[in-house]
Simulated scan of single mutants.
Amino acid sequence: MAQPAAGQTPQDAVAAYKRMLAAVIERRPSGTRQRLATALAKNRSFVSQITNPAYSTPIPASHLAQIFEVCHLSAAERQDFSRLYARAHPKKRLAEKSARTATAVELPDLGDEIKNRKLHGLVSAFVRDIARLIDDEREKGKRR
């Protein structure tokens, strides 16, 4: 796994991938931060915190697939971001999670953009929670 660069502190490594994500979001259309907050079922302040290099709060690995999707990271950007993330968090297994495929779920149109975003956020959070539960059970099974 990736090791921090010589002389680079863990905070510097976290700041590096946050700078990259912030730059990607700045190139995206207006409203990307709000769409990301909705998709992650978090407040916009959370998105500001995970994209601000001044904050040492790491981005949870469980959010990366959603971030890649909402921010439309290219394959090269995903690879660069994953490399930086692995350098900052060498014990996390990113490749396994990012290689998984996603399945689209068609949701009804509620006739109101705010309600549609809320529904999407709720369903996304529910599915992520189920996936985490399944992953936790798999990890328990490996320990036996």
Rank of each mutant, 00 (worst) to 15 (best):
D12Q: 15
M20L: 15
K118D: 14
Y55R: 05
P108I: 02
G141F: 11
I67G: 05
N43G: 12
S56M: 08
R28Y: 05
L122P: 07
L133T: 14
I59T: 08
L73Q: 03
G7R: 06
R117A: 12
D135N: 09
R132M: 14
A131F: 02
A39Q: 06
S98W: 12
E139S: 13
P90S: 06
G31W: 03
T101W: 04
R132E: 15
E69G: 05
P58C: 01
V123K: 03
A16Y: 07
R33K: 13
L21F: 02
R44V: 09
R143F: 07
P108N: 04
R100P: 02
P4L: 15
S124P: 05
D135K: 03
V105E: 04
D112R: 03
A104Y: 06
A95M: 11
Q3D: 15
R128F: 08
R100H: 09
R33Q: 10
V105M: 07
V47F: 05
P108G: 06
P53G: 05
A39F: 06
L21Q: 06
Q11F: 10
R83G: 11
L94D: 01
P29H: 03
P10W: 02
A104D: 13
P90H: 00
P53E: 09
S124T: 08
I25Y: 06
D109M: 06
Q11A: 15
T38K: 05
V127F: 11
S82L: 15
E113S: 12
V24W: 05
V123M: 02
R117Y: 02
L36Q: 04
R93N: 15
K91P: 07
A41H: 12
P58I: 02
Q3M: 14
A104G: 07
T57P: 03
G111N: 01
L84H: 00
A65R: 10
R19P: 03
S56V: 10
D109H: 07
L94G: 02
R132C: 13
D80I: 11
R128A: 14
S74N: 09
A125I: 04
R144S: 12
